[in-house]
Design a protein around this nucleic acid. Structure first.
Lengths: 239, 239
DNA sequence: GCAAAAGTGTTTTAGCTACACCCATGT
DNA sequence: ACATGGGTGTAGCTAAAACACTTTTGC
């Protein structure tokens, strides 16, 4: 803030969302097909421009609501970072974006007719190895988001955000297995999460069994940090 | 990116720096006294406006160079996040900032006559409890930065960034003690950091003793993640 | 010799891994 | 009955905490 006014640049600021969810035991991301240039017809992260009297978090929450009908208060929504390379938009050098990571419970299939008429859920895997197929620098943003999510599962309790309001320990384990791409030992996982202080709150209810003994149902507990952390196995048999 | 042009807002974007360093065994932050309104005469984080053909990281690196004469390549510099409340600048609603955390080795006292003519190093503690005394929302940013630094020391090797090119294990322990505000057991700390893979590289040289046996000198090792993490004591006798 | 800081050894404890084994349901 | 997934018990291992003790310097 020590420079003269003529050096100041005026920029468009967007909030782009990496909305992660789990379907069929695999990590998925919500993508939209672009209807306008640049990158017309290519897949991109949902996002939108910041408006006046709005924080960037409010912009992100608004886009999230428009794309998923979900309320940002109910979801984990965190800033990933600013992406500001001058050539990231080939038609306008003055667009910087603040990327957000959103963690969503099982989403309904995107409904036609809504504002998200062209939204699809895709498995993240192809985009992690081949980042170039997304519009703008969204491949890079998606890779950063997945890396952030993998790390967050170790040290925080956000994994419950992928589950519904009530869930079983197996379902939670499925979240870790899908995001980390490993198999975890069910007995040890059960002990770890049920004994971690504030991670899970028992509801006293049980799930309707699907093929075995009914599992106890839990809600997300009050804790936000997971101490001690859930250590990610160094290298295991991939799923 | 689905909205019409008239809804787009044009914004000024600044990079504000939280430059942390350690002096006299206490965590310090570099602050400047503002010479212009708003907040004339108040202390603020150094920062500056983003220019054309520049990424926000380059803006931050430029400001860092101007304030400390240090090269950003040699330092740990990471994004903290975007602060975008419309009323954060009482005179211009269109200024958002991207805050950065910089970790600097022992800085020389800010030199008069440079661009940082009015820069001072202050201990962070007063600003953590009384955030209101800094300009803008910089008290909030500083608190977030210190929290990030405390967390980073657990899981990464950035603590070496507070030390010079060669340092002793004691000096490194002093970093942890200053940032966390706790006393650590010297024997256990020594084992932990010397056995952590890639954290420290022995130089073979020894420090000139100051009051005791000379200590071995190390350089920062190649590792960036610290595995297993250095767990922060739950609650200890404060320093 | 004594103080001070560096560094090693040793005991105890906590947490994790691996895996055997029992539990409660559907078919 | 038996298959299936839920959940507990337990032995062994690894890492960390606590602290006694040795080493190497300056004075």
């Amino acid at each position: 803030m020590t420079h003269v006014y003529r050096e100041r640049l005026l920029l468009h600021v967007t909030a782009d969302l990496v909305i992660l969810t789990i379907r069929h035991s695999a990590l998925h991301v919500l993508l939209v097909e672009r209807g306008t240039e640049p990158f017309r017809g290519r897949l991109a992260l949902p996002g939108g421009f910041m408006r006046g009297d709005e924080t960037i978090e409010e912009t992100a929450a608004r886009e999230l609501r428009e794309e998923t009908r979900l309320d940002a208060d109910a979801l984990h929504l965190e800033q990933l970072g600013v992406y500001s390379a001058p050539d990231r938009d080939p038609r306008d050098r003055r667009v910087v974006t603040c990327a957000f990571l959103a963690i969503a419970p099982r989403l309904p299939a995107p409904t036609a007719g809504s504002d998200a008429r062209d939204a699809t859920l895709r498995t993240v895997d192809p985009f992690l190895t081949d980042g170039g197929s997304l519009a703008f620098d969204h491949g890079r943003i998606l890779r950063d988001a997945v890396e952030r999510a993998r790390s967050a599962l170790q040290f925080t309790t956000v994994a419950t955000g992928f589950c519904g309001p009530e869930f079983t320990v197996s379902e939670l384990r499925g979240v870790y297995e899908a995001v980390w791409g490993v198999r975890l030992d069910p007995p040890n996982f059960h002990r770890k999460v049920t004994e971690a202080d504030g991670f899970l709150t028992p509801t006293g209810r049980r799930s309707t069994a699907q093929g075995g003994r009914p599992a106890a149902l839990y809600r997300a507990g009050p804790a936000t940090r997971l101490t001690p952390p859930m250590m990610r196995p160094r290298s295991r048999v991939p799923v």
